Amino acid sequence: MFASTRCKALPLEELLARLTPLRAAGGIVFTNGCFDLLHAGHVDLLERARALGRVLVVGLNADASVSGLKGPSRPVTAFADRARVLAGLACVDFVTGFDRPTPLELIEAVRPDVLVKGGDWPVESIVGRESVQARGGLVMSLPLLPGYSTTSVIERILALSGHAGLDASPRRD
């Protein structure tokens, strides 16, 4: 990783150490997801989440976790690459991975002031809601940018790959 992304994608222990001096000022925002094949909908959500505080922490599902949630053909992009891409976004301050079925333990360790998920998650269903609200934090489900999903990107790629105009053989002009 480049230095700028390496200092943003951290193991949990290092992340918590980096958050300690920032915690007093408040404004720690947390979101999580698979972020496989990052697209404009992801970036839109992350930028809006970051606008809710001073620091945005992204919990990133480990590869096995993505496979369990999305099926055996996923993730398309390996964990290290997904972490690097997320860490390269200006709106993301820190990225850390988790390999549990849910991010509950990670949320309880990070102790965010604001917990955010996309609008496909009703607030009542957001993992970690009780923990964040019990500490006086805010839990939000932000509307998704219409027309964007990793699944739709994959389906489009697969449909295009069968198109006669997309020949992968060498050109002989």
Rank of each mutant, 00 (worst) to 15 (best):
F2R: 08
S4L: 02
T5W: 14
R6H: 11
K8P: 01
K8S: 07
L15V: 13
L16S: 02
L16P: 05
A17V: 03
R18C: 11
R18S: 05
R18M: 09
T20D: 13
L22K: 04
L22R: 05
R23K: 09
A24D: 03
A25D: 11
I28A: 07
F30S: 09
T31N: 05
N32A: 02
N32P: 11
C34G: 13
C34Q: 00
D36C: 03
L38G: 07
H42D: 05
V43H: 08
L46S: 02
E47N: 11
R48N: 12
R48L: 01
A49R: 07
A51E: 12
A51W: 04
G53L: 08
V55S: 03
L56W: 11
V57P: 14
A62C: 04
D63P: 00
S65I: 00
V66D: 00
S67K: 11
S67D: 08
S67G: 13
G68A: 12
L69H: 10
L69T: 10
K70A: 13
P72Q: 08
P72C: 13
S73L: 06
S73T: 06
S73C: 07
P75G: 11
P75L: 15
P75M: 10
T77G: 08
D81M: 03
A83G: 07
A83M: 14
V85L: 07
L86G: 09
L86F: 02
L86N: 05
G88D: 05
A90Y: 00
C91F: 03
V92Y: 03
D93Q: 03
T96D: 12
R100L: 13
P101A: 13
T102W: 08
P103R: 08
L106Y: 15
A109Y: 13
A109T: 10
A109I: 11
V114W: 02
L115A: 02
D120K: 00
D120C: 09
W121C: 06
W121V: 01
P122Y: 01
P122R: 07
R129H: 11
S131F: 13
S141C: 03
L142V: 06
P143E: 09
L144W: 00
P146S: 10
E155L: 15
R156C: 13
I157G: 02
I157K: 15
A159G: 14
A159C: 15
L160E: 12
S161D: 15
G162H: 06
G162Q: 14
H163D: 07
D167W: 14
A168N: 12
A168E: 01
S169I: 01
R171F: 15
R172G: 08
D173S: 06
D173N: 15
